[in-house]
Design a protein around this nucleic acid. Sequence first.
RNA 1: GCUAGCGUAGCUCAGCUGGUAGAGCAGCUGACUUGUAAUCAGCAGGUCACCGGUUCGACUCCGGUCGCUAGCUCCA
Length: 637
Amino acid sequence: MSQVKITLPDGSSREYQQGVTIKEIAFDIGPGLGRASVAGRVNGQEVDLAYQIEEDVELEIITIDSEDGLDIYRHTAAHVLAQALVRLFDDVQLAIGPTIDDGFYYDFDLEKRLSEDDFEQIEAEMKEIIKEGYEIERVELSKAEAIAKMKELGMDYKVELIEEMEDEVVSFYQQGEFIDPCRGPHLPSTKMLKTNAFKLLNLAGAYWRGDENNQMLQRIYGTAFTKKSDLEEHLHRLEEAKKRDHRKLGQKLDLFSLHEEGPGFPFFHPKGMVVRNQLIDFWKEEHRKAGYEEIKTPIILNQELWEQSGHWDHYRDDMYFTEIDEQDYAVKPMNCPGGILVYKDRMRSYRDLPIRLGELGLVHRHERSGTLHGLMRVRNFTQDDAHIYCLPEQIEDELSGVIKLVDTIYNAFGFKYNVELSTKPDKAMGSDELWEQATSALKEAILANDLDYEVNEGDGAFYGPKIDFHLEDCLGRSWQCGTIQLDFQMPERFDLTYIGQDGEEHRPVMIHRAILGSLERFMGILIEHYAGAFPTWLAPIQAEIIPITDDQLDYAYQVKEELEEAGIRVEVDSRQEKVGYKIREAQVQQIPYMLIVGDDEIEAGTVSVRERREGDLGAVKVEEFKNDLLEKIEKKV
RNA sequence: GCUAGCGUAGCUCAGCUGGUAGAGCAGCUGACUUGUAAUCAGCAGGUCACCGGUUCGACUCCGGUCGCUAGCUCCA
């Protein structure tokens, strides 16, 4: 027997007999580590504790309290869920069961339609399996054997998956009577799962392989932790997150509403309009500084325009149509064709380029009913659109300019964002060469700006690839907001030209871009981001004046007038209620400042300032409060 | 669009195995004139989403439609 040299992450190394398992090494290093170990990473590859080391390797022990350890733990929990389903339902067909950010799910096919009422029974069976404490063993079969095995068990989806694998050996994990093909690793035993720290959360339909043309499977989502308290904390966090839901806050803070009379067509209330208008003011200011001009184009335009743009061929199903004087018209789903008409309205010189035309354009799209979601996914929304017409050699600078503008605007709200590069979809216009050229230009712009990004294959617009900027909502769901699309198709289709230095006509390049994405979605994100407590510059009401009795009403209105004259949004709560009541009301409405005025304040010409988070700040002169507040608003703090 | 669930007063929710609805908050009226997160009393408010069926009788059971929620698909 020869020795193998194990190098640990800290650089130290140890010698063991060839064939030593990771579990043995972990216990050899220390019993504490041994007990906490769930798997290993050999030369960067995750493997089971029972994995035998046959040569010199770099080894990392994965412990239960690490992120990777928890992931393995949850993966085993998913297998236990699958095992429970197989035990409970004869005709269950297993599909896939991966881990996700906060838990795991398993997809399966079953004649019986499950409901959440069935969770209790399934969880009980899972607990039983955990208690029975099966060793979890890795089994390797040849591809042919693997297929035969799955056919024998009637697992058609697994057969399909294995048939498409390239490897000749397929690994399985067996626990008791249950066996499931899986890459692993897994916990060494089902009994390592805590019976009181997992929970099945919800049930959903999910298409096999994510394709809506396929069979719809049933999916059970669950989560698992190594401690009961962690599970409880997680569930508590979910509850707290739900309180930030923009749909709830929108109603509570009287910002907007949705009605059956117009599904997906949001109604903005006066307070919601304040936020929206502040956002627009900020947007306009930043765009003015970045060299944009603004236009406005019609909502309804002749159908022929949409045929020319390619929307008729590629986007018709998502559009609304109408008729005017027996002519066919369409309600715009995008602003570009209208904007193009503005560009084409006169001759353009190379000296004019780049031309940056911004438009807060109201678009309508027929989104499928099941996809609507508060303000995040609606059927009419205002895009903070702009189209940049430029020379080919200006592309790089223009793309960078937009990326920087996105960063500036998102930073004003403290948003973290994810960047995706979306490439050519199946349903696309134009040659592969042009797409390739446009895609690599976008990629270069991302790299030049030092952004991390992921590639989203086939998710581009039908006329060009795009860089998408994603923001997260209260539950961590990702929503596309900003987008930059490089387009060589529309200039061609609309025969866009500029006169070059040589006096000849040339083709400009077009960049479509939105920073906020849509005002509606962005506001939804904003509401959840701030949990309704908007920074003062955005707050619908910035200060609530609270007189203690009617005797101070005159003074209250006097203060109101002074602040209003300075442009501050202020209200007087003139109701005959106790101070505590009015304060509570203002707190619930997340008003940044409450100004309490009693006889003392009248006497001294002050207001007692209460800040919504810090509480009572004491009395200050009205003038001082005003200047202070104006400065905060100006600085957007 | 698909799968599952849900739809009772402006809001949040009760309503047992079918016998034509109730609370709190909000609203209105009155009293109280109040010092940093809810003063008291009274009043009013519902074709139980809509349409049809079963039944002597339906908020309750069944079917359909619409809307909402979670997820899938699709997307700003």
